[in-house]
């Protein structure tokens, strides 16, 4: 028996659909899970609020808590001026959160463990920040790269650093989520594989397998935390970046 911890990230082309610029587009397992996320998030958020109950039930409370959580996070970062980005930030948060949580179900697929997915999301945030920043502030947006209170003779040194840190944001933003999901799932899979390998060695192996079993239980709890925390981190970084677009003067 052999278990490959990388195999869980494999994309499978399930159904060829159409061709764009020489690229064949497939319906993949990843696409299937994206649809699952779409359906589940919609079902939770829209389904549970259908009754518009003033006194919420449990599921409606979950929806409202998520909404208020994001609304508070966004308001704290950007003030009321940024509240028009609430649908975007909320969508981003719910998408990433559900992707991370669904990925923890054994044999399932984690959409956010795909680098291309997190990169697209991070670039989306990046371009929204750049475009909205120039749109609303015009050239004042470049004040973002000139921190207040820095002596003029430092600026030739500071400004390139600020520009660099701004440009590398999508990298850190996307790789953080991707790497967390990837590493967590690989670790879980490796320890789970230990259980099966040890159990294959007979009675003694069964006792030995208890150790990695508890490890998997503990790691699973940790991964549950990581799944939520990383979704939150992704969302709060988005809020902080959006604040730069709304209030570029630091």
């Amino acid at each position: 028996m052999h278990i490959d911890p990388i195999e869980q990230f494999q994309i499978r082309n399930l159904l060829p659909l159409f061709n764009i610029g020489g690229h064949q587009i497939f319906f993949t397992n990843s696409a299937a899970y994206m649809l699952v996320i779409l359906v589940l998030v919609s079902a939770l958020v829209i389904g549970t609020t259908a009754r518009r109950a003033v006194i919420p039930g449990r599921l409606q409370s979950i929806t409202e808590l998520s909404y208020e959580f994001m609304a508070t996070t966004l308001r704290n970062s950007t003030g009321t001026a940024g509240m028009k980005f609430l649908p975007f930030v909320f969508t981003l948060f719910m998408f990433v959160l559900f992707s991370n949580l669904i990925g923890l179900i054994p044999y399932s697929f984690t959409v956010t463990s795909q680098l291309i997915v997190t990169v697209i999301l991070a670039l989306l945030v990046f371009f929204i920040v750049v475009i909205y920043g120039f749109w609303t502030n015009g050239w004042r947006f470049v004040k973002l790269f000139v921190p207040k209170g820095v002596p003029v003779y430092f600026l030739p040194m500071i400004v390139p650093i600020e520009v660099m840190s701004f440009l590398t944001r999508p990298v850190s933003h996307s790789v953080r989520l991707f790497a967390n999901m990837l590493a967590g799932h690989i670790t879980l899979q490796v320890f789970a594989a230990f259980i099966i390998m040890l159990a294959g060695y007979g009675i003694l192996g069964w006792f030995g397998a208890v150790l990695p079993f508890f490890m998997v239980v503990i790691l699973f709890a940790l991964e549950l935390l990581v799944a939520c925390v990383q979704a939150y981190v992704f969302a709060i970084l988005t809020c902080i970046y959006l604040n730069d677009a709304i209030h570029p003067g630091h």
């Binding site: 696409a31 994206m34 779409l38 969508t91 795909q114 291309i116 997915v117 697209i120």
Partner: peptide, 13 residues
């Protein structure tokens, strides 16, 4: 696999 992922992510998102 990137083109397929890109298309589906954009679509679902």
């Amino acid at each position: 696999y990137y083109p397929s992922q890109f298309v589906w992510l954009v679509l679902t998102f």
